[in-house]
Nucleic acid binder design. Structure first.
Lengths: 188, 188
DNA sequence: CTTGTCTATGCAACGAGTTGCATAGAAGGA
DNA sequence: TCCTTCTATGCAACTCGTTGCATAGACAAG
């Protein structure tokens, strides 16, 4: 049910349409949460009928009208309730780790290219995060002094950066292990 | 659909019942994948009727019979197919990060205890992983020389250890940020 | 002039995952 | 003696999340 809360936070930071939310979920919010537009539209509809959100039709030139959502008082209350309720620390869920263990029953060397592909994807994401950090927080264009909201956004972004760096280092470890296995004794 | 494949890998490492699988998913496999027993029983039933698994009733003393599942030839093929098919690199999905950003619209100081609780949970998990590493891979009781399967299990465990260390360091960063915010200017 | 992409919204169907409940014998502690 | 915990399996109902498809106007490239 955390998609509801992620949407509340995002709309408090800035009201917007379902489409805009979907784009944000590909960017900043997507650092730590993902959602497709279908999911977002469905949840927006439900939250609006529950009175947590208010809609306003915004006509636009040269493109379809958009429905701009914003958080109501009772939406704010719902978010505060959730913030004060403890949640379970979560563990990772990593398909690639399943593949790595599964490689013992197949050819470990065949996994090298897949791992390299993932490593590249994480490198790209790290670059993207670092560019965002420079633009919004540490570069010359960044607002100074930052307010509480920006400080908190920045520490979350630092978490994403740390995650990507850790993952890249681990994938290097995986690659070294796979190469060692290929050198000492081919599988089967 | 990766639960299917996680089950195949686990049953190839060692055949077992649904109950035993559920316990493994709380331990070693749970380093990177979680599943409840209900989910596991349902998937086991489906995979068996699809011919990917074979069942054998094992009578036991003093406790109910168990159904021991093992992987069939076509189960092995299904796993190999998946191993050779590229998968999408996945991103994290972190409720706590949503809470941290949400704290800008509430009281950041109120989040300190929750973050400390998560930090402790990750510390505990790290201890647990390190104990497992010593027991199975780096301690005097560990098998030497290790085979490919053990090498691969170890590198996955090292990934879990790196993840927990990174998370603990990040939560320290979060706590320092929250304390800084509380000191300089109370929220609202 | 057609094809593709972008904005903008949505339905329908399915699969994945969670929660609550139920059964049942054995063992151990209060 | 009762209560809880452990082994062992499973159903039913629900929510969450994904995939495929559909609409529709604007704009740009070929």
């Amino acid at each position: 049910m955390a998609l509801d809360h992620a949407i509340l936070v995002s709309l408090l930071e800035k009201p917007g349409s379902g489409y805009e939310l979907a784009r944000r979920f590909e960017r900043s919010i997507g650092y730590f949460w993902t959602a497709t537009h279908q999911q977002i539209y469905r949840v927006l509809g439900r939250m609006e009928s529950d009175g947590l959100l208010a809609v306003r039709a915004v006509p636009q030139e040269g493109r379809p009208d958009k429905k701009e959502y914003s958080v109501t008082g009772s939406g704010r209350t719902a978010l505060a309730d959730w913030l004060h309720k403890p949640i379970e620390p979560e563990s990772l869920r990593h398909d690639l780790a399943v593949k790595i263990r599964g490689a013992a029953f197949d050819d470990p060397a065949a996994l090298v290219r897949e791992v390299e592909r993932h490593r590249q994807a994480h490198r790209d994401r790290l670059e993207h995060y670092l560019a965002g950090e420079l633009r919004d927080f540490t570069g010359p264009e960044a607002p100074a002094p930052p307010d509480a909201g920006q400080e908190l956004q920045h520490v979350v972004l630092r978490g994403g950066i740390a995650f990507e760096r850790m993952t890249i280092a681990w994938l290097d470890d995986v690659l070294a292990t796979l190469e060692r296995l290929a050198a000492t004794g081919p599988a089967h």
